[in-house]
Structures are given as structure tokens and as C-alpha cells.
């Protein structure tokens, strides 16, 4: 079969809803797009540990400290299996990691914002994880088997995180005046960046059409964003926080909530590296990576010696 025929067979399999597995033939471009998307997803989990980790040592009760620690630990776990899933495409974790630390690879821009009060932790759980769930529920149906399975697993844990964040935010929103102030302030700061998590509007999304043809994604950025807004409006009302969008209104005909203009200039600026925390996040991750080098070398050297000794003994 020539490449054209292989491509046709491949597309037919996708259209039939079959899963593509690591050993199957796939177009080079499909492989490249997946590596880009999956590693970006993995990097996001890892960088995402920083803003939340910022509150572990200051969490206001032992219960909340443990909940947060467990959540951040889950994110490390998500990163780990996303990297493993990406490695099925013939790349190495080390190269992927170095590509975001020193190269051009990206991670989700949402983590380039600071966590200023403890309410930010709750809002990240509710909004950021909530948005991630909308996205990952779709990705759990992705045509690439290992990625679909990784997302299925991630979704289960994220739903738990969202519930915990939402519950604590509800408590704060109905709490003392200081707690209410923190809760509303955090919602005000995270709302727009959360809407940007779904990516640029459809007409400006360079990868969407191709990813949808290949069923890596099954919905467009705007469709996902809309479904997130629809469910979040009701959740906000229920706990008494206000979403900072005066143009938010229900459209009887479409059955959807219409929202105001997303500050896309900010989106593009932060993606290009000029967000409030881009430089600090990268600096912190590079520091951990570079300061951990001697540990990783020691582990490798020890394993080598051990193997050598065992070989000699037998």
C-alpha cells in the first residue's frame, strides 16, 4: 500500500470510531499533533502543581492541607501517565520536558496567574478543574487509544477535585465578610482566564479542523466553552458568587448563556510569555530540574553498579 492508500484506510478506521493504538500505522502529521497536544497536557499538569503548591504550607485546617496535598499529588500522577502515554509515540520524557523548559513547547496559560489567597485554591478546583473536565471528557473519546484512556482516568480524579473546590468555595462565599471578599475576588480574577483555557475562537484556531477530522477532538473550542459557561452560571448562582461579566444573559431561543467579549489580547500576550507568572513558573521548574540533576545521575549510577555487581555474582 502506498501512503495515500494507508491514509484512506486510517481515515476510514477513524470514521468508524475505531481506536488507533501505538503499533498501528498513522500519518506522520497525526503523530506530531498528538505529541504536541499530549505533552502540552502533561506539562500543564506539572506546572499546575506550582500555583496550588503555593498554599500547601498555609492551608487553614489539617483537613484542607491534606486535601490540597493529595490533589497536587494527583496532578503529578496525571503528568506521569500523560508522559507515559506520549512516549508510546516514540519520544522520550526527558526530551519533552526539556522542550518546555528550554525550548518552544507550551503548557496551559492558566497557570501563569498567581494564587493570592486561599480562595484561589477553591476557585481553581471549581473553575479551572471544571473547565479541564469539559475538555478531558471529550478527550476521553479521542481516537488515540492511550490518550483516551489517560483522560478517562484523569477525569475521575478531576471530578473529585472540582467537588472539593466548589464545596469549600461555597463555604467561603457564605462565610465571614473576609471569606466572602476573598471568594468573590478570586472568582473575579480567574473567570476570564478560565474561559481562555478552551483556546482561541474557532475561526482563529489553527489546529482545530485537522484534530476534529482525526477525531482527536470531537468538539470545537467554542462549543466546549459554551457548555462550560452554561453549567457554571448555575453553579455560581447556587453559592452566591457573581461572575464578572455584565453581558452574561440567557438566550431563550438557543438555550445557552451568552457571554461578553473575552480579552483575547491578554490571551495572546500570556501565550507569548508575557503573563504575570510566566517567567517565575519557568524559573521554578528549571530550578527543580537542574537541582535534581545530581539525584537523577546518582540513581542511574547506582543502578548501573548494582547491575554490574549482580552480573558478576552470577
Amino acid at each position: 500500500m502506498d501512503t495515500k492508500e494507508k491514509s484512506d484506510v486510517f481515515q476510514k478506521r477513524i470514521d468508524n470510531g475505531e481506536k488507533i493504538e501505538p503499533k498501528d500505522w498513522m500519518p506522520e502529521r497525526y503523530r506530531k499533533q498528538l505529541i504536541r497536544m499530549m505533552s502540552q497536557h502533561a506539562h500543564s499538569e506539572i506546572v499546575g502543581m506550582l500555583p496550588e503548591g503555593n498554599w500547601i504550607t498555609r492551608a487553614p485546617s489539617l483537613k484542607r492541607k491534606m486535601v490540597l496535598l493529595a490533589k497536587v499529588q494527583d496532578e503529578a500522577g496525571h503528568g506521569l501517565y500523560l508522559y507515559s502515554a506520549t512516549e508510546t509515540l516514540g519520544v522520550k520524557r526527558k526530551d519533552l520536558v526539556e522542550d518546555y523548559l528550554y525550548g518552544k513547547a507550551k503548557y496551559s496559560s492558566i497557570f501563569n496567574y498567581p494564587t493570592l489567597t486561599y480562595a484561589d485554591i477553591c476557585v481553581i478546583g471549581w473553575l479551572v478543574d471544571g473547565a479541564a473536565i469539559v475538555n478531558q471528557t471529550m478527550l476521553a473519546k479521542s481516537s488515540y487509544g492511550p490518550y483516551a484512556r489517560a483522560n478517562l482516568r484523569i477525569c475521575k480524579e478531576e471530578s473529585f477535585h472540582k467537588k472539593q473546590g466548589y464545596e469549600m468555595l461555597a463555604k467561603m462565599a457564605g462565610g465571614t465578610p473576609e471569606q466572602q471578599k476573598m471568594a468573590q475576588d478570586a472568582v473575579n480574577r480567574w473567570w476570564w482566564p478560565t474561559l481562555m483555557m478552551f483556546g482561541p475562537p474557532d475561526e482563529e484556531s489553527p489546529n482545530s479542523a485537522e484534530l476534529i477530522t482525526w477525531a482527536v477532538k470531537t468538539k470545537t473550542n467554542d462549543e466546549l466553552r459554551q457548555s462550560f459557561v452554561d453549567r457554571t452560571v448555575m453553579e455560581a448562582r447556587k453559592i452566591g458568587v457573581t461572575l464578572p461579566d455584565p453581558d452574561l444573559k440567557y438566550n431563550e431561543e438557543t438555550g445557552h448563556w451568552e457571554y461578553g467579549e473575552i480579552p483575547w489580547d491578554e490571551f495572546w500576550r500570556v501565550i507569548k510569555g508575557d503573563g504575570p507568572m510566566n517567567r517565575e513558573r519557568l524559573k521554578a521548574r528549571r530550578k527543580a530540574y537542574e537541582e535534581g540533576a545530581w539525584v537523577r545521575e546518582a540513581a542511574m549510577e547506582y543502578a548501573r553498579k548494582k547491575k554490574y555487581r549482580e552480573g558478576k555474582a552470577s
Binding site: 500547601i56 503529578a76 527543580a288
Partner: peptide
């Protein structure tokens, strides 16, 4: 817990947090 997110490798981030 101060190591969370700053460990020498991902596996250790998990282990120390654990």
C-alpha cells in the same frame, strides 16, 4: 510537603507528597 512540585524527578514528587 515543601517539596511538592519541586522534587528532583516526577516520581519523587509523588513519593514525598505521599
Amino acid at each position: 510537603s515543601e517539596w511538592t512540585g519541586h522534587g528532583p524527578e516526577l516520581e519523587e514528587d509523588l513519593a514525598l507528597a505521599n
